[in-house]
Design a binder for these strands. Structure first.
Ligand SMILES: [Mn+2]
Ligand SMILES: [Mn+2]
Ligand SMILES: [Zn+2]
Ligand SMILES: [Zn+2]
Lengths: 149, 149
DNA sequence: GAATATAGACGAATAATTATTATTTAGCAA
DNA sequence: TTGCTAAATAATAATTATTCGTCTATATTC
């Protein structure tokens, strides 16, 4: 029992076919200590004291590797660029993690009252929406045919 | 009756203190025709046939003005940079539209079954989460004190 | 421990967005 | 209408976020 973080990390890497490197271990350890939603630059700053020669590009690559392996996830799956919603009617969205396409989903209204109850005092809620993420029909079809090529 | 789109747009602009310009009208008209979730570049391409000399920067500024005025909204509250979720437990997020801070919100599980029912066939749902957007406590406090300075 | 595959450092390249500035235009009042 | 002024636009430079290419270093496999 009492598995150390390092042992847990090594096990995860074996499962996901990721080489266990010192940089990856340090990044993973720092991530597990964080309870907010850092960007790559902030992760970089956190690991630099222990890895003075690490490159920001390595942090990016490592984060992507961790996301692909399911060790962490990404709160902002949009493609880096601003996306407009021209239509006013409230609805939910399906976001494709591969092609970043956004599909409208007709849903019943979420229980806004219950959600707002969990929001800290002083916060002003303006919009509430449900987001589904995964692989869209087109991308799923492509994977399928690629897998059978 | 039969208010034209142009008349509706002019009325909206009056209400929001936006000057009615030809560029803004054309952008608004194209947006209202769109049922997807375009990025600024795509809006630019759509209006160029009618406004051959428009600048991409103008499209950006106009979209921001429309968002600020509430004519349209933004699906990706422009986190600008990748944001990591190191913690695995499912929870919801409050996203501040001003400072882009992301706050965890403890909520009951959404009705995943009902949501999945609205997803087109062939789509693979991997994650479901609720997103609340608005102004966080800190930013709200700042606005308040600014308003009373 | 040596061979091979993968990862890292670093700088340069690309994409998205914003800032600057000179010019044009909308809104308003005479 | 005309002219004034503040705001908006076009063109382009600058910034910011992210990715890529190349060479070196390290991890894994045998
Ligand atoms: Mn939509
Ligand atoms: Mn979170
Ligand atoms: Zn897709
Ligand atoms: Zn805020």
């Amino acid at each position: 029992m009492g598995e150390t973080l390092e042992q847990a990390f090594q096990k995860l890497c074996r499962e996901k076919n990721l080489a266990v490197t010192h940089q990856r271990l340090v990044i993973y350890r720092e991530l597990m200590k964080m309870h907010d939603h850092p960007n790559p630059e902030q992760v970089y700053e956190r690991v630099r004291p222990e890895l003075p020669s690490i490159s920001l590009a390595t942090v990016y690559k490592t984060l992507h590797a961790f996301v692909a392996a399911g060790l962490i996830c990404q709160v902002s799956p949009h493609h880096g660029s601003m996306r407009i919603e021209p239509q006013g009617e409230p609805h939910s969205h399906f976001i494709c993690l591969r092609c970043h396409d956004i599909t409208d989903i007709a849903t019943g209204d979420p229980d806004v009252a219950a959600l707002k109850a969990g929001v800290p005092a002083g916060y002003q809620v303006e919009q509430v929406s449900t987001e589904l993420r995964g692989i869209c029909g087109r991308c799923a079809a492509e994977s399928f045919s690629a897998g059978h090529a």
